[in-house]
Nucleic acid binder design. Structure first.
Lengths: 334, 334
DNA sequence: GTGAAAGCGCTAACAC
DNA sequence: GTGTTAGCGCTTTCAC
């Protein structure tokens, strides 16, 4: 925390050439080998590296992309961030993490902040969406890629998944292994994931013959909320299968089932969603519907790279299919 | 992705006043109420917000802080990042995530990249450290705060914890609950955490009477590596206690113990380290040594805020004490 | 191939 | 209290 940074002008003076030649020699093109050599040497002596801010101002490019989610601690978002970073970093882009807050309004404000031009684009996964947010995204001065709801026909790039279909796959699986009394543990219905999973469950139930169907809404998508909601659900009547809207709720549910002296999967088979590391290492390992967090993250980042290259490129849509991974919590292998 | 951004000059023209007055009215001080009102109105009409890059170039301040770790997916780092973000965001700082790679050399290069001036400071947790890295940190053009080893007397700010002492607390706890044959499951010894935990274990063992002491080094700090290493350790002879160098290794160890038909904690008591969410929700819940990831993250961020305000402020040292949290895996309550 | 000069958007002297 | 102007560090016309 002591040294001070050399400027391009200083390198130019040291090399005894013009500012323009120095710039060309270092980054641009059209400089003679001798010039390049000479400038390189001067730059090395001074420990020069180009100032990112000056460069950005001139180029109108920050080489930064924002990743915005409600909670950067959520394992699903962590996976996405990791994937996004892995795709963008080799292309020289930095990733700025931001939080949307959990309302559509606070997310709208965050998108609006793109007006200050600190990033070349934003990848955002809104927990809740409304028309104002949609409009703000459409009017944003830089490309925005939405991870979550499909945004076809609105001129917004999005990476979506079929979580409703994913719940369907879980329901079908439970029916196939002979379960007939099913419970559904969802999170808040006014969130994008909560709403679509709700739809998925009801659609699946209608197509499948269950003797008993029950449902409970947890306060949020956490283990603790899952535990409490599952207790309530179990108290209302016997089930032999539980579909949870994410892995954390599922783990709360496993605990609740065990509290009643019953076992998983023998007495109650349980499925989660998101296919997190947590579910994979848990005992019993969790049957879970993967929504391809990593894949969605990389896809969003790849779209961003395209859009950053050509901001007038038309909006891209990518859909990542859900995939059921059967493990111990429904009688599969570890 | 359509609109274009208004510039300060445009606001000035619209308001019919000078550029300087416009700037003062919006951000600075010394403008009359009438002027402020007039400029505000013009700015609002144009949907103006100040360009972050132009501002940064002039102020020589980016309002960005880098957080650099080997693997942003590691739960410990995620917790830190969350805490850092929570402290910095209200002060108007953005957080840029970066990866150090896992060698001292790659970390050194990352620190050197601070020369391009894209952030006002960096919080870094190096997996491995050498003299060149230390020197690079000392010479960095912006404040660097190290999370990990204490850096006293070198003019480097650091937030450290006593993981050696933490292992000691785990060993003592196991002895206190009557265990006498202990195994130690560590990660790679050439990493900073691996080395200090190794030291901690040996120091603790010397002070405590155990009948049998065994040890195994896992390939890395993961569940899978923990499982394999624990199998090897268990095969070498009977233990009634296992100290793992982190929660992931501990969970691998629980699985290995169960594979042999023994139970946790009755036959083998197990401790982890880091006190992660994973360990808290696992069954059995994991006795673990908390190293205060959240606390370390916030402390580092607070130091960064001070240093960003006053870059010549002298280096700060903060030590966060380890804390043993007893849970089911050593016979405690859930 | 090289140099001189303009200008990206902003703030802070400095004059009035 | 307001306006004029220089300049942060860089790239890129435009002449030569």
């Amino acid at each position: 925390m002591t040294s001070t940074r050399a400027t391009l002008l200083q390198v130019a003076e040291r090399a005894g050439v013009s500012l323009a030649s120095t710039s060309r020699a270092l980054h641009g093109t059209g400089a003679s080998p001798a010039m390049v050599e000479r400038v390189r040497a001067a730059a090395a002596e001074l420990g020069y590296s180009a100032d990112a801010i000056g460069r950005s101002l001139r180029l109108k490019k920050t080489f930064q992309v924002a990743f915005a989610v409600a909670d950067i601690g959520n394992p699903v978002y962590v996976e996405m961030m990791r994937a996004i970073h892995a795709v963008l970093e080799p292309h020289g882009y930095r990733v700025v993490v931001m939080t949307t807050g959990d309302t559509a309004t606070s997310t709208t404000e965050l998108v609006r902040s793109l007006n200050s031009g600190f990033v070349d684009g934003m990848i955002v996964s809104p927990l809740r969406t409304d028309d104002r947010l949609i409009r703000e995204i459409q009017q944003a001065p830089v490309p925005v890629v939405v991870i979550g709801r499909a945004m076809d026909g609105r001129g917004i790039s999005s990476v979506s998944t079929d979580s409703a279909g994913g719940i369907g796959a879980a329901v079908t699986h439970l029916h196939t292994i002979g379960r007939r009394r099913i419970g559904f543990l969802n999170g808040p219905l006014d969130t994008t994931p909560g709403a679509s999973r709700q739809r998925g469950f009801h659609a699946a139930i209608e197509e499948t013959a269950f003797e008993r169907v029950d449902q409970e809404i947890a306060a949020d998508f956490t283990v603790t909320a899952g535990l409490e909601a599952a207790r309530a659900l179990l108290a209302r009547g016997p089930v032999d299968a539980l579909v949870a809207a994410n892995d954390l709720l599922a783990i709360g549910a496993i605990r609740a089932v065990r509290e009643t002296g019953r076992s998983v999967p023998e007495d109650v088979a349980i499925t989660g969603m998101d296919d997190t590391e947590l579910g994979r290492v848990f005992q019993p390992s969790l049957t879970s519907v993967s929504l391809g967090s990593t894949e969605r993250g990389s896809a969003a980042a790849r779209i961003m790279l395209q859009l950053a290259d050509d901001p007038d490129h038309e909006a891209q849509q990518v859909a990542v299919g859900p995939e059921l991974v059967v493990r111990e919590s429904t009688g599969g292998a570890p």
